[in-house]
């Protein structure tokens, strides 16, 4: 199908087999192109599904804190698509079980920040300083 009215699923370079709960688009590094922040949940899988039970001893999926959180991933835009950031460690280490992410200028300094809602733990806020290429977490 072609034309202005169509949209299709496409193959992309977004190679991500983890549990991504949400994502946000925005210009995180201030270069004028759209970047992508993908928030991940935990490392649950059928192979990593230990037995847990409710208070009534009924078998159930274990609570989120039973599993290890996963790093988030940032893809930086080229203007025609997005590519994974070479140094992914820049955005790692914020160990939480992410549910939702918003890219918005929270602190009013005219660049985009990252606000992440976490499951069972405190939310976090990443204040970016695009001009300096750095960030800090609050």
């Amino acid at each position: 199908m072609t034309g202005r009215s169509s949209i299709v699923t496409v193959e992309s370079n977004l190679d991500d087999s983890l549990w991504s709960s949400s994502a946000g688009w925005g210009d995180l590094n201030g270069d004028g192109t759209l970047d992508l922040y993908v928030a991940h949940y935990v490392n649950w899988s059928l192979e990593n599904n230990p037995p847990c039970a409710t208070t009534g001893s009924r078998p159930d999926v274990c609570p989120p804190r039973r599993f290890d959180p996963l790093d988030d991933v940032v893809y930086f835009g080229s203007g025609e698509g997005v590519v994974r950031q070479p140094d992914e460690r820049m955005w790692s280490g914020f160990w939480r079980q992410r549910l939702g992410v918003l890219l918005v200028d929270v602190d009013g300094d005219a660049d985009l920040d990252v606000y992440v809602a976490n499951d069972t733990t405190n939310n976090f806020f990443i204040s970016t300083m695009a001009a300096e290429g750095s960030k800090s977490r609050v």
């Binding site: 199908m1 169509s6 949209i7 299709v8 496409v10 992309s12 977004l14 991500d16 991504s20």
Partner: peptide, 18 residues
């Protein structure tokens, strides 16, 4: 034209205008 991305367990799905 706005594109979309669907997140989930085990993959990402991209939707774009051809």
């Amino acid at each position: 034209f706005p594109d979309a991305l669907i997140t989930g367990f085990g993959g990402l799905t991209a939707l774009e205008k051809p």
